[in-house]
């Protein structure tokens, strides 16, 4: 049962990720991203990181993709007739694609990471205490910095999305 589910999740995630860049319509691309994130959350469950799977669904699928869809509806994404592709950009894209495919192929052919089977190592990520303890001891400073980062981002977004100031009154 587990191998079948795992195989399905891997293929599903890969196909949906490809859909993000293949779909012409931006809403379809966002939906493909959503499905891809659900697949990754399923893989997290396979890795016994239940909390992270839940957080991924909550933060990414719940908040980020919804924000994307809001913005897609807010602004007109078609924005005029499509223009001809820059030939230089096409060549650069083909070269980049070749490099990426070559790197992946070499990984599949020669890259064998020596790791014990999953059953041989304890699943630390399955318990909540294992997350809370490092977050409040070794990683306390990064947590505080992240809180400050969220505050700065919030203020920045409020400032960015204000209507432009009409200028000082005479």
């Amino acid at each position: 049962m587990f191998p079948a589910i795992f195989t399905f999740l891997v293929l599903f995630t890969a196909v949906c990720a490809a859909g993000v860049i293949v779909c012409r319509n931006t809403v379809n691309a966002a939906m493909c991203l959503l499905l891809c994130l659900v697949g990754v959350a399923g893989l997290f469950v396979c890795l016994e990181a239940y909390l992270l799977a839940f957080l991924l669904l909550l933060v990414y699928a719940g908040a980020v993709v919804t924000l994307f869809l809001f913005i897609v509806m807010l602004i007109d994404v078609r924005g005029g007739a499509p223009r001809a592709r820059n030939p230089l950009a096409t060549v650069a894209g083909i070269i980049a694609a070749a490099l990426v495919v070559g790197g992946l192929a070499s990984f599949w052919v020669r890259g064998h990471l020596a790791a014990p089977a999953a059953s041989a190592t304890p699943a630390l990520g399955a318990s909540l205490k294992a997350y809370a303890y490092p977050l409040f001891t070794a990683y306390l400073l990064p947590v505080q910095v992240l809180g400050f980062l969220l505050l700065v981002a919030m203020i920045g977004v409020v400032v960015l999305s204000r209507k432009p100031d009409p200028g000082p009154k005479p």
């Binding site: 995630t13 990720a17 992946l104």
Partner: peptide
């Protein structure tokens, strides 16, 4: 790790 590399490559493309 291979799937992770694949997802990263798709995003880069």
């Amino acid at each position: 790790v291979g799937l992770s590399a694949l997802l990263f490559a798709v995003g880069l493309l």
